[in-house]
């Protein structure tokens, strides 16, 4: 393959991923509203298009035609930059997550991942930490006390939970002896899913993922009743849409990360024993990956409409006094597994 072929293939992959991600985000907003309605014995959006399926587009057009307001007290460059940081970070994270096993297409061997980086997990951790900047900038530059409080809460929360997140990931890395997401997925063949081998790490990672994406039991940066809208109080029109998109994209990415690290990625246990052709196996594996992500997104929403918000001190003590020691215990557990069973 020469450089042009690689470039074109990568561009096509990027295009597919971005379109997929945008559609996922649009429809997770729709399903969020639907699920909230079902939980509360309501119907949910059902007017725009068949079963309300065009609702996300109606929402986007509504946001597009709204006035873009920048408050007088705002720091204008940062105020404008913040939503773009949030968006960039959430979209860039997706580059290292493998969709399926390598495929042969038109004589090319194509990895179903935009960038097969051998330190992919580090890349993801680095980018998710950058995500704090978008929110903190937004909170600080708005020149509003509610936004500032939201931004500060967000940075404190994200830094605290990043620690336990990183330590839970360490267990996964020990197990697969690689930082590459592709290798991590390949190491989880059969029922060797990390969620089964290290349940404590799975739970700590799951909880930290909720905190990292600011989803409901930990949505203190937004906390509507206390902070109006949190860090995006002063945003309107498309910049607000940017934060909104980033939030839902983060949820999709957190789901994809959980699937990749703990639920076997695209692996379907014992599929190779069925004796299917390589193409069919690949299609089933990609479908399995997407179904796993969908199920996790549903789980995220289900949790949101079931649980109340944590108080801020509870959030912090949960992060440092419970999640952090548990993540450390998980590392010891994984080390013991490797020492004793030689996995």
């Amino acid at each position: 393959m020469n450089i042009w072929e690689i470039l074109i293939i990568s561009l096509i992959k990027i295009l597919i991923i971005v379109v997929m991600l945008l559609l996922t985000v649009a429809y997770s907003v729709y399903f969020e509203r639907k699920i909230s309605a079902w939980v509360q014995n309501r119907v949910g959006p059902n007017r725009v298009g068949w079963l309300g399926l065009l609702q996300p587009f109606a929402d986007v057009f509504k946001l597009m035609f709204k006035e873009d307001i920048i408050p007088d007290a705002a720091n204008k460059p940062l105020h404008t930059l913040a939503p773009f940081i949030a968006l960039f970070v959430s979209f860039a994270t997706y580059a290292v997550i493998p969709l399926g096993p390598p495929i042969e297409l038109f004589g090319y061997k194509i990895n179903l991942v935009v960038a097969d980086v051998n330190i992919g997990i580090l890349y993801v951790l680095a980018l998710t930490s950058l995500g704090v900047y978008g929110i903190t900038f937004a909170g600080w530059s708005s020149g509003s006390k509610y936004s500032l409080l939201g931004g500060i809460r967000s940075s404190a929360q994200m830094i605290s939970y990043e620690v336990s997140m990183g330590f839970s990931v360490a267990g996964v890395i020990l197990m697969s002896q690689s930082l590459s997401p592709v290798k991590i997925v390949e190491a989880q063949h059969g029922w060797m899913w990390n969620a089964i081998l290290q349940p404590i790490g799975f739970i700590t990672f799951l909880v930290s993922a909720f905190a990292e994406t600011n989803r409901l039991p930990f949505d203190l940066p937004e906390a509507e009743p206390e902070l109006v809208g949190g860090y995006h109080t002063e945003y309107s029109s498309f910049k607000f849409a940017g934060f909104f998109l980033a939030e839902y994209a983060n949820m999709a990415i957190a789901s994809a990360m959980i699937v990749t690290l703990y639920l076997g990625g695209y692996q379907v246990p014992y599929i190779e024993k069925l004796g299917l052709s390589y193409t069919l196996t690949t299609i089933i594996q990609i479908a399995a990956f997407l179904i796993k992500i969908g199920a996790l997104i549903f789980f995220f929403m289900w949790v949101r409409w079931s649980l109340p918000r944590f108080r801020y001190d509870q959030l912090m003590s949960l992060g440092w006094k419970v999640m952090f020691p548990l993540a450390l215990a998980n590392i010891i557990w994984v080390a013991a597994l490797i020492m004793i069973f030689g996995l």
């Binding site: 699920i35 309605a37 079902w38 939980v39 509360q40 014995n41 309501r42 119907v43 739970i203 289900w302 949790v303 409409w305 079931s306 649980l307």
Partner: peptide
């Protein structure tokens, strides 16, 4: 927390399959 969370989530899941009360 976890057993209580499971209880709460079971309740919301049960509600998802109840007939809804909305009038169009």
């Amino acid at each position: 927390y976890i057993p209580e969370i499971v209880k709460g989530m079971a309740l919301t899941l049960k509600n998802m399959f109840r007939p809804n009360v909305t009038m169009q």
